Computed example of a mutant assay.
Amino acid sequence: MLSSQRFDKIASNFATSEVHRSSPTIDALHETLGPQTGRALCDVACGAGHLALSFAAQGPARLVGVDPAPSMLEEFRALADDRGAKVEAVEAFAGELPFPDGSFDLVMSRLAPHHFPDLAAAVADMARLLRPGGQLAVIDLEGHEDQEIDALNHELEMLHDPTHQRSYTLDEWIQCLNDAGLNVPVARGSQAESPTGVPVKRWCEIASSGTEAEQAIRQRLTEAPPGHLDALGIRRTGREFLIPVRTCMVIGVKPLAETR
């Protein structure tokens, strides 16, 4: 797929990206899930593995990162080695995960599902991997309920990264997890991976968007109604725009097997 080919070339950008290394939503996810000691964890479309490795010190029984881009998995292994973490790196696409049913206690994916060409199939496959009572945790770019604002958001994301598919609203995420047979006790919208905002220049550097795309983003932001920017959490300081990387966080739980 084009997205895996593109990310294979820019993997080092994501290994060093401040947006991907840490964020308030990662902290919130840890606080919500609690310790994962002795549990089997899988990070789908893991990129450089920052989310998976944030659990490494907790002593999981198994820590797996899955990504279709070989260079991303190389970065994941290198970061794991730096931390002395034992991990498994598996090359595969979301929706084609090469594990038996019920292999994991926690499956997660961060800042990746907006690239999935078939979200429902990917979520169903991730849910398949869960043991009864297991959790699927997703942090991803959030769409907007207002169609005009959502259209602006989509245009900006496509300029930023042409392999972007779609940012889903919180309600759409809840429905998607429900359709995969999961209960959704946690659903939080209007989160931000960078509360202070990432300058457009840096935002484009991370994704290797290119000068032409960066200029087009700046032009579109300059022309956009201020209310639209406010709704997306985008702030202007002088000639620069600050991007919050607006996200939502959802956690689905696989029901326990019925007892007879």
Rank of each mutant, 00 (worst) to 15 (best):
G65Y: 09
P68E: 10
P68A: 12
A69Y: 07
P70I: 01
P70F: 08
P70D: 12
S71Q: 15
S71P: 00
L73W: 14
L73N: 12
E74W: 04
E74F: 02
E74L: 09
F76A: 10
R77Q: 15
R77F: 03
A80F: 04
D81V: 14
R83G: 09
R83S: 13
G84R: 12
G84T: 10
K86T: 15
V87Y: 09
A89D: 01
E91T: 06
A94C: 06
E96K: 10
E96S: 14
P98N: 09
F99E: 00
P100M: 06
P100Q: 09
D101S: 14
G102M: 03
F104N: 08
D105M: 07
D105W: 07
L106H: 05
L106I: 10
V107Q: 12
V107E: 03
M108W: 09
M108S: 15
R110C: 02
P113R: 01
P113Y: 10
H114K: 11
H114L: 06
H114R: 10
P117W: 02
L119Q: 05
L119M: 06
A120I: 00
A121L: 09
A122R: 02
A124T: 03
M126C: 15
A127I: 04
R128K: 08
R128D: 08
R128M: 12
R128S: 06
R128V: 07
P132E: 02
G133C: 05
G134W: 10
Q135W: 10
L136Q: 10
L136M: 04
A137R: 12
I139M: 11
I139A: 05
D140A: 07
E145S: 13
L152C: 06
L152R: 14
N153K: 03
N153I: 03
H154G: 04
H154P: 01
E155G: 12
M158E: 11
T163W: 04
T163H: 05
T163R: 01
Q165R: 15
R166Q: 14
S167K: 11
Y168Q: 04
Y168P: 00
Y168L: 12
Y168T: 00
L170V: 07
D171T: 14
E172N: 11
E172H: 01
E172R: 09
W173G: 05
W173Y: 13
I174L: 06
I174A: 08
C176R: 14
C176M: 12
L177Y: 08
L177I: 02
N178C: 02
G181W: 13
G181T: 03
L182T: 06
N183C: 05
V184A: 07
P185Y: 01
V186H: 13
V186Y: 12
A187K: 13
R188H: 10
G189M: 12
S190G: 00
S190E: 15
S194H: 00
S194T: 14
T196S: 15
T196V: 13
T196A: 15
V198W: 12
V198E: 14
V198H: 00
V200A: 09
V200T: 13
K201H: 07
K201N: 03
R202I: 14
W203R: 08
C204K: 06
E205H: 11
E205I: 03
I206A: 04
S208Q: 15
G210T: 11
